[in-house]
């Protein structure tokens, strides 16, 4: 016996294509901008603000050195040294996987709409089986978060005196949003307590799991907000560095 045979891709009559289209535009725009910005190798520091695309800055040649791990021989963009971590974290994130499998791979483009490809093996084979290393990216993103918070703290330091500029607030919000994104992640939820079969015997981890579960319900919203914000943060610092705009100083 065969299933219902209908020529159409779907019987849906609503605008099911809208969501995948918006995701393609959103993620596409970010990918293009971030690649361009990462390859600029300049204008990523406007004292006291360091663009998150270049933080931590690990080369001697950096405009603002966080940790001088790479000597003067390193002349490429220092963004390349670290961007693979947040990039890989997001690429293997359970939310982004859904987003790009749907909108870029059309696998499926929307619910009850036929897949584009005729064959399918999901995440059982290379390369997609590599999605399983998501938690390693989670661990790796934690030191980066620490640097971003450090960047936000030193953004109060205007040549030795305390101050608050719009950039300070932008960097704080950036660190906060990226922290929310990391800690609301499904792997973090599992590592905190999801892997337990009994919560009664581990009240601390149960509590942590409960908080992360609440955050995790908003993982998609946090993913987009933090993505847009980190891009805008780079834009802001870059415009300051170019001298196109002036930082707004509150104190």
């Amino acid at each position: 016996m065969s299933t219902l045979a209908i020529d159409k891709r779907t019987l849906r009559q609503d605008t099911w294509w809208l969501e995948p289209m918006l995701v393609v535009l959103g993620l596409g725009a970010f990918a293009v901008y971030s690649t361009w910005a990462a390859l600029q190798n300049g204008n990523y520091y406007a004292a006291p603000y360091l663009s998150p695309f270049y933080s931590p800055c690990l080369a001697i040649n950096c405009e603002h050195v966080s940790v001088p791990l790479f000597g003067s021989w390193y002349n490429w963009s220092p963004a390349i040294l670290i961007l693979w971590i947040p990039g890989g974290f997001r690429l293997t994130c359970y939310y982004y996987r859904k987003a790009y499998y749907r909108s870029f791979f059309w696998s499926p483009p929307a619910c009850a709409v036929r897949d584009a490809a005729s064959g399918y093996s999901g995440e059982t084979r290379f390369p997609f089986i590599l999605q399983n290393i998501h938690r390693y990216f989670f661990w790796a993103s934690l030191p980066i978060l620490a640097f971003l918070w450090w960047d936000a703290i030193i953004a109060f330091n205007f040549g030795g005196s305390f101050g608050i500029g719009l950039g300070t607030l932008v960097l704080i919000a950036n660190a906060a949003l990226l922290s929310l994104y990391s800690f609301s992640c499904h792997s973090c939820r599992h590592l905190c307590g999801g892997g337990l079969n009994s919560f009664k015997t581990a009240p601390g981890r149960y509590k942590a799991w409960g908080i992360i579960t609440k955050l995790n319900e908003k993982h998609m919203q946090i993913a987009w907000t933090s993505l847009v914000w980190v891009g805008l943060t780079d834009v802001y610092v870059r415009l300051l560095a170019h001298g196109v705009i002036q930082d707004l100083r509150f104190i």
Partner: peptide, 15 residues
């Protein structure tokens, strides 16, 4: 059970 086939596109949750 083929858990790896799932690419977590979440249509099951939606319906």
């Amino acid at each position: 059970a083929g858990l790896g086939f799932c690419n977590i596109t979440k249509c099951c949750t939606e319906v």
